[in-house]
Design a protein around this nucleic acid. Structure first.
Lengths: 144, 144
DNA sequence: CTTCATACTTATACGAGACTAACATTATTA
DNA sequence: TAATAATGTTAGTCTCGTATAAGTATGAAG
């Protein structure tokens, strides 16, 4: 794992997500998604390009390199697992689940994510197989 | 909840924990606990004093105000709940559980912590009541 | 082909948080 | 009590991530 600040991981992940929507990713798209200004994106993209994680010609498209894509997908998969914990298992609002997932996705090591995923799978499997268990869990979590 | 950066919350929590061990909290104690240098602590304590969360005379003791203590305890309780998730429920090493708990304790809103606590209580209760359930959960989480 | 809107970059500055180096205070002990 | 060790603070610098302001490139319309 190359050294990469959390902020840069956020930008990298944003490129991946933005790619799914539009054919070419531009500075402006990332700025809008992340809620920052264009100069901030410029600086971050330059850093990512230096690290060999994206390709970017001046005034042109931003594209993930294979290495960058792999790293972005890793971050995103953590994000998804965490979101699943908060939103699906704990039943929190989407907005709050998203915030929490963003805050944690950079810091959880691979082992923790794996364990967490297994716990969620276990709970979902049990709840799917037994209505009694599902009801018990729901009751335990409360209404608020 | 007054505006307080995550960093300052860390310092505040450290004062609370340090208080439990020794009669008087000093700059050096916080520096050691947090793994930073004395000047960093000086600056942070000054900011906490300005915010009315600690009392501190120059070259003297550092003490929590009632307001500061309340805030510190809130942060710490979140920390404990998260640690419990990682260390006890997921079975991760203490060191890693600690890192993850630290990273999250500032960002989880009260609702998420409450839900999480209930989930952990539910799982612990089930595992305590049924050896079969405990074994099933342990198997689901895996050995690695 | 020139003009103009849009998008991108560069230059500069700021706040948070950390560091080192240097200075000040307190405590110890010879 | 005077020297010295331990501790605390101040001053100045660094990095990271953000912003604003101003200049540069692209592309669409007249």
């Amino acid at each position: 794992m190359g050294a990469l600040t959390e902020g840069l991981e956020d930008y990298l992940e944003a490129v991946l997500l933005e790619e799914k929507d539009r054919r070419f990713v531009r500075t402006k798209d990332l700025a809008k998604r992340l809620g920052v200004t264009s100069p901030s994106v410029s600086a971050a993209v330059k850093a990512l390009a230096t690290a060999g994680l994206v390709n970017h010609e001046s005034y042109g498209h931003i594209e993930l390199t294979p290495k960058g894509r792999k790293r972005a997908q890793l971050v995103y998969s953590r994000h998804r697992t965490l979101y699943r914990l908060f939103a699906k298992t704990l039943g929190l609002p989407a907005r709050i689940s998203e915030t929490n997932a963003c805050a944690m996705e950079h810091r959880l090591d691979a082992g923790a994510v794996r364990k967490l995923m297994r716990l969620l799978e276990f709970l979902e499997r049990k709840a799917g197989a037994s209505d009694a268990f599902a009801a018990e869990l729901e009751k335990a979590l409360g209404d608020d």
